[in-house]
Amino acid sequence: MRSFEHVNAPDIKTAIALLREPATEAIAGGTDLLGELKARLRSPRRLVNLKTLSNLREIRYSPKAGLRLGALVTLAEIERHPIIRERFSILAQAAASAATPQLRNMGTLGGNLCQKPRCWYYRHRLFHCWLKGGDRCFAEDGENKYHAILGADRCHAVHPSDLAPALIALEATVRVVGPDLDGEISLAELYTKPTESHRRMTMLGPGELIIEVRVPPPKKNARGVYLKAMERGSWSFALVSVAVQMSLEGKRIADARIVLGGVSTIPWRAKGSESILIGQEFSMELAERAAEAAIAGAQPLRDNAYKVSLAKSLVKEAVGSLAS
């Protein structure tokens, strides 16, 4: 790591003001950022430590308002929280599936949602790829086993977060603040496909922070499941993951939200699958059709066609497990 200055953020306003200065980065748990600094992907002049913003560490719940999670809540706190386990189980499952116990004790919700891609070209200092401001994507015709199969454009990296698909399936919103910004948006809107002029995986710009994540109260008879295909049982990013949240009225599916991880540059909402399910009586044949719809339009690269069948199987398994 190159040397840097360090400031403990005294309050949110000051943190934002500090962060809009050039070559300044926010550090929360540091589990992603320190990896980037050690690999010298960036060399900030100054780090602003968010961990001193102690009002962002709370988990609050009320049956009316739902769940409110401060950006600094750790993954371990989410995984263990009794109400989250009971009423927002896919969030607890997603948190428990991420990284390792040690990293979950360190890593925060805000950092998880804003973490950078794990594409190995991105993580290597010597590849000045498109996302880092260069002019080509090395994964497109290179080693792309872990890359996107859906909706990719210039960049083929997948968004690595486990929490994001679960939270989007739960219709979460985030409060974002910045120099000229203070508002609540849906978490799905936070994620944008990187474009020529905004080569980032979220819509946030310099000095813009996530302060809080809000999850509405669960719907009647709601249930959910988070399934994650991994190369080993721990310490692995998702090859493909799927978060499904469904409400059932008897055998009829009243509502369904399906979001996939590991398949696109953004958490991938499978709206086609949802509309096949909603209003129908559950059957395995219906689950099969919904699974097929989830991968409609998939464009695998040389080494990642396996993700197409994996995604399909996971959706079918997840939907099936909830309805029976």
Binding site: S3, E5, N8, P10, D11, A17
Partner: peptide
């Protein structure tokens, strides 16, 4: 274009880059 705004009032403590 953003003005490089120096944070006001609240005292901040900058440590480093030295020991």
């Amino acid at each position: 274009v953003t003005k490089a705004a120096r944070p006001r009032k609240r005292k901040i403590v900058v440590r480093g880059p030295g020991k």
